[in-house]
Design a protein around this nucleic acid. Sequence first.
RNA 1: GCCCGGUUCGUCUAGGGGUCUAGGACGCCGCCCUUUCACGGCGGUAACACGGGUUCGAAUCCCGUACCGGGUACCA
Length: 506
Amino acid sequence: MPVRVRFAPSPTGLLHIGGLRTALYNYLLARQSEGGAFLLRIEDTDRSRYVEGAEEDIVESLRWAGLEIDEGPAVGGPHAPYRQSERTEQYRAAVDRLVADGQAYIAFDTPEALEAMRERLATPESPAPTYGAATRERMTNALTLPPEEVQRRLDEGEPHVVRLRVTPGESVTFDDAIRGPVTFQTDEVDDQVLLKSDGLPTYHLANVVDDHAMQITHVVRGEEWLPSTPKHILLYRALGWEAPQFAHLPLILSPSGGKLSKRKAEQAGVPVFVCQYRGEDACPPDLVPADAPRLPVEPEALVNFLALLGWSPGDDRERFTLEELVGAFRLDRVTKSGAQLDLDKLAWLNGQVLRDLSDEALAERARPAVEARVGPVEEARLVAAAALLRERLTVAHDLAEATYLFQEPEAYDEAGVKRRWKDDSARLVALYADRLEADAAFTEASTEAAMRQLAEDEGVGFGRIIHPVRLATTGTTVGAGMFETLVVIGRAATIRRLRRAVEVLG
RNA sequence: GCCCGGUUCGUCUAGGGGUCUAGGACGCCGCCCUUUCACGGCGGUAACACGGGUUCGAAUCCCGUACCGGGUACCA
């Protein structure tokens, strides 16, 4: 049977890094199954928390990561619509059935009444009493009110919810694909609200109804859902449906070990939203402050990194393309414990990805950052720059740091000047410029030969010349091989820069 | 509080009774390469939460404790 999985985020915020991992694992499961499908379902049943732009961000982030959606809001599909706010009749129908069967009941308790109940029943040992078998008989609902009274209230349009009627004294066991058998007692499960007073379903109801309607075979979601799973199983039973296979993923923790909260992460300099990894300007400015951390990486690197955060192939492989992940991923090899985000490893992985790119591809990935810095750059020069510096990059936009490949150095590194610019530097640099004037070929070999000859003629060490020349032509003390760098800079510019440095630095 | 889950190097992890003097990766340190900085190569540092069992033998199985995390909403 083909695997049908869904990624079901709620548009209450931008796509979280943990959300992308959940989506990835789901995607991999779908792709490794003949005829499998990966669906995107928007769970927008909470009007009050809806965030404008969140759905667009989710879709764009998935696209960026290369996770192609088979069925979803934009692409459609046989089970459309894929937005829960557009599926209310289906939930209504399910609830009506449950109420008719006596599996669910109408309740009129106001938020104040619930609050009062909790306060009244709270004890130091049990500070959070719930609406359930132990309390439902003391509340205002269809189980305690005479039928005429219930009808009267309904006719008067009194706000009400529908709750699941949980039978106490039973135990619910399910076999989690990652954790094995997990058991809950129904005494611990409250009479969950299924339909809210605004007529919209809660997550629990909508989720079960949709997963069944959309023929989902595997529910792969975060560990925070583990405690609600018995509610879902009970719902499947009450509706007479077969429950899908469940798999609960370990949580992603902040680098310091705690919860990966937006607030804390931002303070620690950790990007939590996918858009913060997508690019310098990928986040909606109204949702992410300008000074929030960014770590623009290649999608291949983030995917590779996330795959390994909570899963391992069982052998020593670390590098995976999305394609390879499809072949290697197994749900039963997913870890059970939370994983701390390790940005160093992401950076390393990104460097690896960069090194596997062609010069042309690398140039294109770096282009936006470079052009933001130095203006329009022609293709050939950008590719040459990429070829020159590729081994030295951690993230593609670092190429923009090497402004000297595109324009005159703006300044000379102060510490570098102090260390490398000696008393004889101006004289030697000037002499080298003279020699380059005579070097029509201006190749790596010829420029190096010229410098070696000069060193010999002047009776000085090679370093006495090469370091000041690097400083003069690039403004820095670090970079690729000197002579390949000079060739990229070009003969005329090189000579001009040498002369200028002689003047400026003396 | 109660319920559920988890616990191997700093971090991600391998390992599922003997092959574990615990393997790999990131990081860190050192050496080589290199008259720069990186890449790369080689080497090093570093872990089975604790206590009881079971067993000839336990990182691996059981129990307890501790700690971490999640849940306990008309949020998802």
